[in-house]
Measured scan of single mutants.
Amino acid sequence: AVCQRCQARFSPAERIVNSNGELYHEHCFVCAQCFRPFPEGLFYEFEGRKYCEHDFQML
């Protein structure tokens, strides 16, 4: 399997985020606008991209 964002493979010891069947490295699972991790894992999706609450409100 490969990361949805960076397309790199996962190492066996690595923590992986699964979002609706899409797999991400922990450091790749970030807001599409500000590139920060999601507070408490909370995000909003718009047109296939994931956003933090602040950036989602700015759309």
Rank of each mutant, 00 (worst) to 15 (best):
P39L: 07
R9V: 11
N20C: 11
F35S: 15
L42H: 07
N18W: 02
V2I: 13
H27N: 03
P12Q: 09
C3G: 03
A13M: 06
R5N: 10
P39A: 10
D55F: 00
E14W: 03
E22R: 15
E14L: 03
A1K: 14
F29V: 10
A8P: 01
H25M: 01
P39M: 08
A13V: 04
L42E: 14
Q7V: 09
R36W: 03
N18Q: 10
E22H: 14
A13W: 04
V2Q: 15
Y51N: 01
V17S: 08
V2T: 12
G48V: 01
C3N: 02
D55N: 02
Q7F: 10
D55R: 01
V30Q: 05
C6P: 00
H25I: 00
Q33K: 09
P12N: 09
H54E: 15
H54V: 13
F43C: 06
K50P: 07
R49T: 10
F38E: 03
F43G: 05
C6T: 00
L23D: 09
R5I: 14
R15I: 11
R36Y: 03
L23Y: 15
P37I: 06
E47M: 06
N18L: 02
Q4L: 15
E53P: 04
Q57I: 05
C34W: 00
P12W: 05
E14D: 10
P12A: 14
V17D: 05
E14I: 02
F10H: 04
F56A: 05
R5L: 08
F56Y: 04
F46I: 03
Q4Y: 14
E47A: 08
D55G: 02
Q7R: 08
G48D: 11
V17E: 06
F35M: 11
E26L: 04
S11C: 08
H25Y: 01
F46L: 13
V30M: 05
Y51F: 11
E40P: 04
E40A: 09
E53N: 12
C31Y: 03
H25F: 00
Q7N: 01
C52V: 00
N20T: 10
Q57F: 04
C52I: 00
K50M: 15
R9T: 11
G41C: 07
N18M: 05
S19Y: 03
Q4V: 06
E40K: 11
Y44F: 12
F46P: 00
A1H: 10
C6S: 01
Q4H: 13
C28W: 00
V2A: 03
G21Q: 07
P39N: 07
G41E: 02
F38K: 06
E40C: 09
Q4A: 03
I16M: 13
R9E: 10
C28S: 01
C3A: 02
F35I: 12
F43R: 04
C6Q: 00
A13E: 14
A1S: 12
Q57N: 14
F38C: 07
F56W: 04
F46W: 12
Q33V: 14
R36I: 06
F35E: 15
F10N: 02
P37D: 06
Y51P: 01
R36S: 12
F43M: 07
